[in-house]
Nucleic acid binder design. Structure first.
Length: 446
DNA sequence: AGTTCCCGCCACTAC
DNA sequence: GTAGTGGCGGGAACT
């Protein structure tokens, strides 16, 4: 309703953000209010004027990936524990519906856990390794045909999750919802609950969360680490699916892929031969031996061309040609504030991560919460230098949200500044770092 | 023209 | 009954 001129909004937000920066604690609400009331380009059948909107609409500004980045920036902090969906929607300036999309994907990779209705608990990127490990174990069990746990039988069968469309009454279809969190408060999980196939089960099978997990499983068990969404849809749907079914599935996979891209778990690339877009796994399983360890992959070997729409590759994420958005939002002067706390956090975080990466095979982006909970470390140690260097590279590359929002850009710039400062200090003390982690990596951020 | 994927309707579920 | 969830597919932005 309040059809705000976006530029005015931007200015207000930027100003508020700048003020917030000075107190070193950004008020998320202000930071992320970027919503320009959607000049919804005329719903289906609307008479005429789709082109009459005077305010070109840019899809990218609304993308799920971007929203996810913003979501993470908003909540990936020490002091965040509980997240209300309403507040998130408000803060991010989107409808609640979109938050569900984000949250479902984040939950299925372990970043969030549903605590109660309308409420999620922030786990952070620490939750990812375990979630992936679990997924991988499950996937491998399914793949090897080893009597999967009863509860997983169905999840295995989600490889063709539409074939049950007309079997809703099937008594042995004891599907288990794989969403870990749902065991918390889902009444159907009560011990006494009848184990018959319910419509809700059917619904869950098609959930974005489950689809995300199955999608990730593909990567975790495949030999190749790239896959196109068409292929993925085929694998997930099984044979003999209808075209419409396929279309729908692919649509959902796009949604998921965009979110996972923004988390830097996957990356969009162009297959060199076919020029067909595909997605490449970045959080691939480490070494066969450290079986469950997961690590961020090194940059692409050059076989494929990162697609420019891939999140995490392009800071701006704004297409200047099409976007009407004030491309003229100039970079504000770098925040010259000391930001002692943030810097300290940054240092502690990266240092502890370094420690951690010695033990588990997983490293996170630079904004991993300092107070994050410890991963249970599997025995796998003795990571070779090289691999660790790769991990370090990945630290720089693993989380680079895109900000089309001025304030967020500034916030991120600030983090970068802090990180750079720390890096230069740290690098002095580490030959290894200097060797493998050049300034160019830092420049990546800019 | 084909691909990508935002948007919001509305069925379903939870309270 | 109301509010919370989220599948789904139309169709517009984008390539």
């Amino acid at each position: 309703m309040s059809m705000s001129s976006s530029s005015v909004a931007e200015v207000a937000v930027a100003a508020a953000a700048a003020a917030a920066m000075e107190s070193a604690l950004p008020p998320p609400q202000l930071l992320l209010q970027q919503e320009e009331a959607p000049p919804r380009p005329m719903p289906a059948g609307g008479g005429g004027g789709a082109k009459s909107r005077h305010h070109a609409y840019s899809r990218k500004e609304k993308s799920l990936g971007l929203l996810c980045s913003n979501f993470v920036v908003l909540y990936n902090r020490d002091d965040v524990e509980s997240i209300g969906l309403d507040e998130a929607a408000k803060s991010l300036g989107v409808e609640r519906r979109r938050i569900y999309d984000i949250v479902n994907v984040l939950e299925s990779v372990g970043i969030l856990v549903r605590k109660a209705k309308n409420r999620y608990t922030w786990i952070g990127f620490d939750g990812v390794p375990m979630a992936l490990r679990e997924l991988k174990e499950r996937a491998l069990r399914e793949k090897s045909g080893l009597a999967p746990l009863q509860t997983e039988q169905q999840s295995a069968s989600t490889m063709s999750d539409d074939e049950d469309d007309d079997k809703l009454g099937n008594p042995d279809g004891d599907i288990e919802n794989e969403k870990l969190s749902q065991t918390v408060d889902n009444p159907s999980d009560k011990p006494g609950a009848p184990r018959c196939r319910l419509r809700s089960d059917h619904r869950k099978e098609k959930s974005l969360g489950l689809l995300t997990q199955n999608f990730v499983k593909l990567f975790l068990t495949m030999e190749v680490d790239t896959i196109s969404l068409d292929e993925a849809a085929k694998l997930l749907l099984g044979e003999g699916h209808e075209e419409t079914n396929m279309r729908t599935k692919v649509r959902r996979l796009y949604d998921i892929a965009n979110v996972l891209s923004s988390l830097n778990l996957i990356e969009k690339i162009q297959q060199e031969d076919t020029r067909k877009p595909a997605f490449r796994w970045l959080g691939r399983a480490a070494k066969p031996n450290a079986e469950n360890a997961v690590t961020i992959a090194v940059p692409p070997p050059g076989k494929t061309v990162p697609n420019k729409r891939a999140f995490g590759n392009d800071i701006s994420n704004i297409n200047m040609h099409r976007s009407n958005l004030d491309s003229n939002i100039q970079k504000k002067p770098k925040l010259a504030q000391s930001g002692g706390d943030i810097l300290k956090n940054c240092k502690l975080t990266v240092q502890s991560r370094l420690e951690q990466s010695k033990k588990s095979g997983f490293v996170y982006g630079p904004f991993h919460p300092a107070g994050a909970r410890k991963q249970e470390l599997d025995g796998g140690n003795k990571p070779e230098q090289r691999e660790r260097a790769e991990d370090w590279e990945s630290i720089s590359a693993s989380f680079r949200p895109q900000y089309q929002n001025q304030a967020l850009g500034d916030l991120f710039a600030h983090y970068v500044e802090a990180w750079k400062t720390w890096y230069s200090e740290f690098a002095q003390g580490s030959n290894l770092m200097q060797q493998h982690f050049g300034q160019s990596v830092v420049n990546h951020f800019l």
